[in-house]
């Protein structure tokens, strides 16, 4: 399989002009190029749902870094996905920290696992939803809470709300 080769696609795949321009446009905000690493990883992952090795090399190229430096930073943040493990169309994070656990967060995560047929970190077969657990997402007044990409959804405390949310995300 071609994905087994980390160098696969070099010289073939290319970041789009708009992605490159967005990254380059951020350079003047910082006194050194490396500071654009996290913003660049976000821009690429938003576009590709992952950051493949070839994209890491291109980011490194734009920022005058070695690909290893980009990889070192990226791998620290469990948030970013490699080319072998891309996100589905929507990332659904279920909070598992204390305020949510006290109001049924564990049960909520189990329900999502069962209804989506996946374990946390996995993506549904249709590529639509990646399920993950999160540590406190800062929405504890609405526990149990989840995130849809980067937006909070509060008080997911009834099976019907679970079903409705899944339906909504499947239809995106």
């Amino acid at each position: 399989m071609i994905q087994d080769n980390p160098m696969a696609g070099i010289g073939v795949e290319k970041l789009s002009h708009s992605v490159r321009d967005q990254i380059i446009g951020l350079l003047p905000r910082y006194p050194c190029k490396q500071a654009v690493t996290l913003p660049a990883l976000h821009i690429v992952q938003d576009e590709l749902r992952c950051v493949p090795f070839w994209a890491m090399r291109e980011i490194a190229d734009i920022l005058d870094l070695s690909p290893a430096e980009v990889h070192d930073t990226m791998s620290f943040y469990g948030f970013f996905r490699t080319g072998e493990d891309p996100l589905g169309k929507t990332r659904l994070w279920v909070c598992r920290s204390l305020a949510c656990q006290l109001r049924g967060g564990d049960d909520l995560l189990s329900q999502f696992c069962k209804k989506l047929g996946v374990s946390p970190t996995e993506t549904t077969g249709d590529g639509m939803i990646t399920l993950e657990f999160a540590e406190c997402i800062g929405a504890c007044e609405g526990a149990p809470a989840v995130m849809v990409n980067d937006e909070h959804r509060l008080n997911i405390d009834q099976p019907e709300k679970v079903d409705a949310l899944i339906e909504e995300l499947r239809a995106l």
């Binding site: 050194c32 690493t37 996290l38 469990g78 948030f79």
Partner: peptide, 28 residues
């Protein structure tokens, strides 16, 4: 100038020097 810089889901970026390392584009 005020610029927004987004984190990437790591608690330790709240520790002030972890934040600074993260801002600089490194592991926090």
């Amino acid at each position: 100038d005020v610029f927004i810089h987004r984190g990437a889901g790591a608690y330790i970026c709240g520790e002030e020097t972890g934040l600074i390392e993260s801002l600089e584009g490194k592991r926090a």
